[in-house]
């Protein structure tokens, strides 16, 4: 029988803030975002503000903004300014659209707040060749320019890398990133490596899921359920609230119109659930630092 996951507490509130609209079209994008994919659209500012208000009552601990590319949203900075009055915010960006004025304004908002603003910049290879093969021509240089801008403004960006290599190369790739970022003057680089999800465009790149890759009830015995994002998160989109940031392409993952409709348990019957089960908390903010183990 399939297992169910209760929402223990709504700690992490996610916003699919720019829908599925992205200036890039990465090969491994698990929700196949692109400049023209409008299956999810921008969330209007007023809706975000209303949800933020509800989130206080629900005791939300951290706010996450993703897309698509969040900085496509014309009100992104304003949204972050509002969020930082309430709690800590994390933005998942591809780094290619970061502009000096925007970053300067965000730096001011962070300084004025008691809460942290984290910027996670996705870069998938430590050289133009390896990165651009996945994320598109010229994206390495543009994302690195974004990282530089963030560093200049005092941020400690978290470089987020989707693992597209075999496990035995993990250390080599990790150290490649450390050297790259040190070379930019980032003395204590924060690097986070996440498993790729076998969904969306990623199915074309490698393979989909096997039927046996499902979570059953007995698999949850002695398992720390808090490892599953859906036990402490929900995803807000312009088309309602979804169980987690991973399954928004799946109509079965929509739980209701707004947050209060989406607080119940969820049956873990989707194959992506298996990745969560095996891979652990892929979306927590914990990231690897840049020191060599001697």
């Amino acid at each position: 029988m399939n297992a169910r996951a209760e929402l223990h507490a709504l700690d992490d509130l996610w916003f699919q803030i720019s829908g599925t609209i992205c200036n890039l079209t990465c090969h491994h994008c698990f929700i196949s975002c692109s400049p023209t994919n409008r299956s999810f659209d921008l969330i209007p500012l007023e809706d975000v503000l209303r949800t933020l208000e509800t989130s206080r009552r629900l005791g939300v601990k951290e706010y996450y903004f993703t897309g698509g590319e969040p900085f496509i949203h014309p009100a992104m900075v304003e949204i972050l300014e509002h969020t930082l009055e309430l709690g800590p915010a994390t933005v998942l960006t591809n780094g290619t659209l970061l502009k000096r004025l925007v970053i300067a304004r965000l730096a001011r908002a962070e300084t004025a707040s008691i809460y942290s603003l984290e910027l996670r910049v996705s870069i998938d290879g430590y050289s133009p060749e390896t990165n651009d093969a996945i994320r598109g021509k010229g994206t390495f240089a543009r994302a690195m320019a974004g990282v530089r801008l963030l560093l200049e403004h005092g941020f400690l960006p978290i470089v987020t890398v989707a693992q597209t290599w075999e496990d035995d190369r993990a250390e080599e790739v990790f150290h490649g990133f450390v050297e790259l970022l040190r070379g930019e003057g980032y003395e204590r680089p924060r690097i986070k490596i996440i498993p790729t999800l076998r969904l969306g465009a990623e199915v074309e790149r490698s393979r989909g899921y096997y039927a046996s890759e499902r979570i059953t009830e007995d698999m949850l015995e002695d398992f720390d359920e808090s490892q599953l994002i859906c036990t402490h998160s929900r995803m807000v989109t312009n088309r309602g609230v979804y169980v987690c940031p991973i399954l928004i392409d799946n109509p079965a993952a929509r739980m209701g119109d707004d947050l209060d409709d989406a607080l119940g348990a969820y049956p873990l019957d989707q194959s992506a659930c298996y990745t969560c089960y095996v891979g652990g908390a892929v979306c927590s903010n914990v990231c690897a630092g840049g020191f060599r183990v001697s």
């Binding site: 601990k61 709690g87 808090s226």
Partner: peptide, 19 residues
């Protein structure tokens, strides 16, 4: 609620602590 939860000043909203 959790022995190994980290509560940092910059990631613990007032409404979260209050609840």
């Amino acid at each position: 609620r959790k022995m190994s939860e980290f509560l940092w000043e910059s990631t613990a909203p007032t409404h979260f602590l209050d609840k």
